[in-house]
């Protein structure tokens, strides 16, 4: 497990500012029992082709205040099920950021611009070094590294895995 989390590779999918948790998982599907059924409604109101086009990109690049709204962790879990590897945003809502890290998905805060990234660019992210290599544009972009404490959670594949190990002594 250890070290596995350092390098994250994937393709860029761009979303806008203020994507809220009701956008990601609409309230009307919240009582659904089967997460795989729920996944079908991801971003249905604001980007209805997202689920269909998910193979176009698995690193989300978003604007400000990503994940604003409720504490519903389903809004991270659907992305996990869909195979999203990392989310880069200009800023994150507090609870959403926690939920991401806790479920083992890196959340990277970066004030990016369209010269650095475009849709479907291939990226390689090094969490330990705080560097994104944009292979399609052949440039590197630096970001503020996550504190060691949070990187540890990611390396364990989420906080429950970390806790399970601790409990097992």
């Amino acid at each position: 497990m250890k070290g596995k989390m350092d390098k994250v590779e994937g393709r860029v999918y761009i979303l806008g500012d203020d994507i809220n948790t009701d956008d990601i998982v609409p309230s009307h599907v919240l009582t659904m029992r089967d997460p795989h059924e729920m996944v079908k409604y991801t971003l249905e109101f604001i980007d209805p082709t997202f689920v269909k086009n998910i193979d176009r990109g698995n690193i989300i690049l978003a604007g400000e205040n990503f994940g604003t709204g409720s504490s519903r962790e389903e809004a991270v879990n659907v992305f996990k099920i869909l195979g999203i590897k990392a989310i880069i945003a200009k800023s994150f809502a507090r609870i959403y950021f926690r939920n991401l890290i806790n479920l083992g998905i890196p959340g990277i805060t970066l004030d990016w611009n369209s010269h650095q990234f475009s849709k479907e660019d291939i990226l390689e992210i090094s969490l330990q070094e705080g560097i994104i290599l944009n292979k399609s544009k052949d440039i590197t972009v630096k970001f503020e590294k996550l504190p060691k404490f949070l990187r540890n959670i990611l390396e364990e594949g989420g906080i429950l895995n970390q806790l399970k190990k601790k409990l097992a002594g």
């Binding site: 504490s71 939920n99 806790l163 409990l167």
Partner: peptide, 19 residues
């Protein structure tokens, strides 16, 4: 007082602590 997600709740249920 503040909001947390399901995984955090599980951590608190198990340990009574939270980062």
């Amino acid at each position: 007082s503040t909001g947390i997600g399901a995984t955090d709740v599980s951590v608190v249920f198990a340990t009574g602590k939270l980062w």
